[in-house]
Design a protein around this nucleic acid. Sequence first.
DNA 1: TTGAGAAGTGAACAAGTGTTTACCAAGATG
DNA 2: CATCTTGGTAAACACTTGTTCACTTCTCAA
Lengths: 249, 249
Amino acid sequence: MQLSQQLFTKYSTGCPKVAAFCYIAAQLHDYLGYMTLLIRAEKKQQTRQALLDAALTLMADGQGFSAVSLREVTRQVGIVPAAFYRHFPDMDALGLALVEQVSSTFREAIRLVRRNELEQYGAIHASVRIFAEYVVAYRQHFLFLAREQYGGSAAVRQAINAMQRDFITDLEADLALSPRLSHLGPEDYEVLASLVVKTVFTTLPELINPHESHQPDSRSPAHQLEDKLRFILIGAKHWRGIKARTDGD
Amino acid sequence: MQLSQQLFTKYSTGCPKVAAFCYIAAQLHDYLGYMTLLIRAEKKQQTRQALLDAALTLMADGQGFSAVSLREVTRQVGIVPAAFYRHFPDMDALGLALVEQVSSTFREAIRLVRRNELEQYGAIHASVRIFAEYVVAYRQHFLFLAREQYGGSAAVRQAINAMQRDFITDLEADLALSPRLSHLGPEDYEVLASLVVKTVFTTLPELINPHESHQPDSRSPAHQLEDKLRFILIGAKHWRGIKARTDGD
DNA sequence: TTGAGAAGTGAACAAGTGTTTACCAAGATG
DNA sequence: CATCTTGGTAAACACTTGTTCACTTCTCAA
């Protein structure tokens, strides 16, 4: 590392014993934990990430993002409140960074589900299972998403909504390619995609806390989500356009 | 009113003139504005209601319930912070009272929709229209519901979830009576009811703020909700039980 | 090697918060 | 009539909050 070499060259004065000592000291220095070994840019980003994680952790106790104070976050990270401003101008800015980060893990989840769909097309069961596992693995991220989609901070809320709309648009394009749904009109795709995405979003809390909202006599949250998507897609398959309005449902 | 009658009987000593005067005085008393005319119990309840309304009003500016402070609420009502404790032990208690109140206006909305359903069965269009109008009329209530269903206060969140489950149970029983859906299993009813209720809940923000989340090129929120419910119910009609799982959707 | 720049410090600031206490005026009650 | 009850008051309490400022280190590059 750079630091160890600096130390090494700084104190090596020709004396081989001192040189050897310095070498060992430098080696030691290299393994003393991140606070001492990182170059500035890395260290800064690490602190920034620690701030983001701290915010998520504090939210996990049940409170919303807007109830998490700047000081709490810095306290959790172990820096002084003023240092916060070296990374974000605002708690809102931190919230937006959080949205960005969380939305990318959501995208990754979708990518995983899609890859599965390509292998064995149409398996809702497998898709939901993969998605549910991913949600559990990234609990905090999805908890943030679920809680703040209608939450207190207007900026965060809007950002999440924008992200959701992106997902809807993507899914819309996807659905339009399906030969099974070629009988739908362009506006039907949009509504259908919105329905699917919002159904997934509302199921997030149940997927995250299966114990909290799950009654023993009913199906598991993942199983319920499966069935819900099935209801929707069967409905789409039998959709007959504008006429269905008076079909009697 | 009770007070006027009290006054009337209290000072009516047999003399007709006094009786007449007291009657007029009592009448006058009834119309002198709420600060001076109410008996204690009524006045207390009125202040209590003012506290509840104030909380809703403060939330309408965009912040979540848990971000509304006790002092803000009392300030808005015009009483001193300490007086809050004459009505609620806690802000959480106020939140729970709010849930109760809001849930009863939701019940009223459902009652209206149901009555319409009886008149002309199966008209999703009319049902959604009635519901949407009601939502707009009681903006603040439904905003509270939409925002706090996953919001910051754990107590409020749980109360709303319990309420939602009640709705789901009711709808479940309703669906089970429909001859069009007699091919569904008992667990299917539950999932279907949950899907419908949650779809309605997630659409609340769009119904409340049509301008905020509505893109000009797509259908109106109410129209979208109609179509979503139609997708779901058509799916239910063509549901073929457990076999549908491998039907290829 | 020196100097600029930036992450983090520590103390101070004016607000705002929830809660408690003693007190008052007025309705309810005997 | 006097007495108790109670909704509301005023002031104080011990905190916490966001933001600022001058400061110390320590990096990195010239």
